[in-house]
Design a binder for these strands. Structure first.
Lengths: 228, 228
DNA sequence: TAAAAAAGTTAGCCATGACTAACAAATATA
DNA sequence: TATATTTGTTAGTCATGGCTAACTTTTTTA
């Protein structure tokens, strides 16, 4: 068994790579993740990812065959989940206690998730009374590192007449988050699909008393729970 | 005038050096600070400090003549004060909201002070209702960057019969902080000087109902306000 | 004041983690 | 199946921020 206590010796970069791999492998349930895909996601060159992946393989966080797809070891996943836990707890804190809005939290949480202190994160969790969801509606992994995802689908997968509730948005881009807020959508908003236009896959939706048309790309980044 | 808005482009290292210089120049009111002194303080080699000082000079945060002593520019000081503000606000948060003890906060605050977000620190300040002192008793610089120090003297400068109140301790070493807590001293403890022993400068003090003998070195690191 | 000690500087090295350019392997497509 | 195209790898470069060893300047002190 590999050392359980080297978890804190990772650099910020190593942590970023492990978290990115986890997001690509697990969250976006891509079948297989390649080197260039990882490079795209992290906005670095393929040479950089190749280099770092090599390093993470020697540390037993990543496995892959030469010219093959990438996968995380259990230990790699465990580190990624801890980072996600930290990220989401900080986002929750920023929104609920420090007047940050939905769309402002990501960048700061991206910094805060690298702070190394077990006590800090567990006390923060306790201080907020062990929240279950972050401000984007995502589940927060617990202290034991148990990760689960909401049964969610993208808004774009629904058809005319469906009713749903907003449970999460893809929080990669600040501009996107801003846009979602601006049109009036919030967590738990009840949305009705009025029409899916065939020619460009744009969708007319209604929420509260508002009717809006959103693009396919928009709908791909909005996660909902179908209301039966 | 140099650019006021390059304040956020500093690396963690650059920030550490500027803060260290400020502590040495202002806080410990050393007359002049040399390169090797800075190296000792930061526990790096003189070559490393020399290198970084050179860089900070080109950025107009530090001034010095070749083979001469070091000084901060106004801009250098301003950055250092902001870091100290962040450090002390985080320490206050950790102690008052997250159950950290006096002696546990330093290392975590050392990480948190490098988080770059103006909003974060100002909201944290507001959340805690604009605290004036950190858990070590030091004054927290305000949002305008105004820095001031308590009129304090070291415990070692007092003489038999003096009464004083603990206002701060030098928070460099975790072991020292632990020791201070363990013998029962806390912020605002009222201390009476019972005896200063000539042969080794050790001091017998009384606080609450406890009588303790402390070394000169200990007394050098404990700051008090004389009670008249 | 001259030699010794301390303080400051420089040159050259290392690791990390970026990059580009060139190349190799795998996959897609004509 | 042969050839593009995409994907992955390697070699070599750069900046940052450490280091040691050797050197120079300044300060101390005998």
């Amino acid at each position: 068994m590999t050392n359980k206590y080297n978890l804190n010796n990772l650099t910020k970069s190593e942590e970023d790579y492990l978290k990115a791999l986890f997001q690509l492998i697990i969250d976006d349930n891509s079948t297989k993740v390649g080197n260039n895909q990882l490079a795209d996601y992290l906005k670095v060159s393929p040479a950089s990812t190749n280099n770092m992946v090599k390093k993470l393989k020697t540390k037993n966080y990543v496995v892959s065959e030469k010219y093959g797809k990438l996968d995380l070891t259990e230990e790699g996943k465990s580190i990624a989940v801890r980072l996600i836990r930290k990220h989401r707890l900080w986002e929750t804190f920023l929104c609920n206690y420090l007047n940050f809005t939905w769309d402002e939290v990501h960048d700061v949480a991206e910094q805060l998730e690298h702070i190394k202190s077990q006590k800090l994160i567990n006390e923060l969790d306790r201080f907020m009374d062990f929240p279950k969801k972050d401000p984007h509606g995502e589940l927060i992994p617990n202290a034991k590192g148990e990760y689960s995802v909401l049964p969610k689908v993208t808004l774009s997968s629904l058809v005319e007449g469906d009713m749903c509730q907003l449970v999460a948005v893809n929080d990669g881009s600040v501009n996107f988050l801003k846009y979602v807020s601006e049109i009036g959508l919030a967590l738990s908003s009840e949305i009705k699909i009025l029409e899916v236009r065939e020619f460009d896959k744009s969708i007319r939706i209604q929420f509260n008393t508002v009717v809006e048309t959103v693009t396919r790309k928009f709908a791909d980044n909005v996660f909902v729970k179908k209301v039966v």
